[in-house]
Write a protein that binds this DNA or RNA. Sequence first.
DNA 1: TAGATTGTTAATCGATTAACAATC
DNA 2: TAGATTGTTAATCGATTAACAATC
Lengths: 213, 213
Amino acid sequence: MKSLGIPIPTLRRLPLYYQQLLQAHRNGEEYVSSVELGKATGSAPEQVRKDLSFLTGQGKSRVGYETKKLAEIIEDYLGLMDDKEAVLVGAGNLGHALALYQGFAQYGFRIVVLFDNDPMKVNGKVGELKVLPVEKLTNLVERMGIRIGIITTPPQPAQEIAEMMIAGGIKAIWNFSTAHLVVPEDVLVRNVDLSLELAVISHYINGLSVRNS
Amino acid sequence: MKSLGIPIPTLRRLPLYYQQLLQAHRNGEEYVSSVELGKATGSAPEQVRKDLSFLTGQGKSRVGYETKKLAEIIEDYLGLMDDKEAVLVGAGNLGHALALYQGFAQYGFRIVVLFDNDPMKVNGKVGELKVLPVEKLTNLVERMGIRIGIITTPPQPAQEIAEMMIAGGIKAIWNFSTAHLVVPEDVLVRNVDLSLELAVISHYINGLSVRNS
DNA sequence: TAGATTGTTAATCGATTAACAATC
DNA sequence: TAGATTGTTAATCGATTAACAATC
């Protein structure tokens, strides 16, 4: 899984800069420097400049980066303004939260339908969104030309669901399950396993206890 | 923020190995090799051995790692079995989902109370958990000796909430807000900003569209 | 002009991957 | 013993940090 050219850490920092640029623009600031961007986002100014140099040289010596213009460049580069439809499988707590979360819309990201196996949930609704049976997954994805799938199921069915998604033409999977997914080369998988973060936190707290006792 | 000795990527892989070890143990397998662990978790076998070597040499040539023993070593190392109480601030969709999620319990992790500003939510309940007003945060944290805080609020109040947490003695913050938190050196912050993942996905899908058109 | 700031090249750092001797 | 597998050292890779010339 190559991201062709740009490092993934850089890619993940771009939305942080983007938000700051929008903010600055709303405040009527025409330019913002790498130092300011860095301070607001927690990166070193060199890092900011390096990251932005992947997009295109836009900064001006002495004044910094044009807020509006650079925000637009990032928008284009990440495709933030394109409408991106997604399906979500697994209408549990986390699935609900993601389906109802408003914040994704600002990046053109929109969940259009949920899937679940549980007969209690199927044909119900979560907010405005229908919950359909998993059997219809591949078909609907294909028919609607959807390219993004979100998995918020337990680990057991995750691989099978990924395959159904891919069969329907999905090219990017946002995997919240703890399963390790095996997919073809041209399919992007982004794993968000919250328990992995717990390990870091737990180890840190554990270290404190050991030292204190 | 140093994790003293062990790389964070390694720390994040340990729970993956741990789950596989438990699984193997349940299946009655006494030993598991680095090749098997790697295949199941998506790491190279060398990576697995390297990671495990941070803990203690436990493997045996020719047979692999003792499932039960290694699982226990990881448990100890990460402090998974210690009861770790946490507070959560921001009883929105994501806050609900985290509060209700069952999966954290297996790592000894337990959210004990929620906080929110919204008078509609305050003094209500989410599942079994009370929702208290944010004014009580510092005090309750201090009184109960809680060391872990979770922030699932909008970005604006996040810094202030972090400070209230820290004032009460919290040492690790799991930050789901998009805010960049500034904290003392001895406080661990783990950021989970889901929109950063969206940037990676969006850029990938964008790249596909460009190539296809 | 002097000074601030960019963009880029080079140096450093840290993690991953490869190689291989040791061992059961 | 032969072969599988570990543990560790060395090589590679990639990202971050530092340095600095170019520029407005």
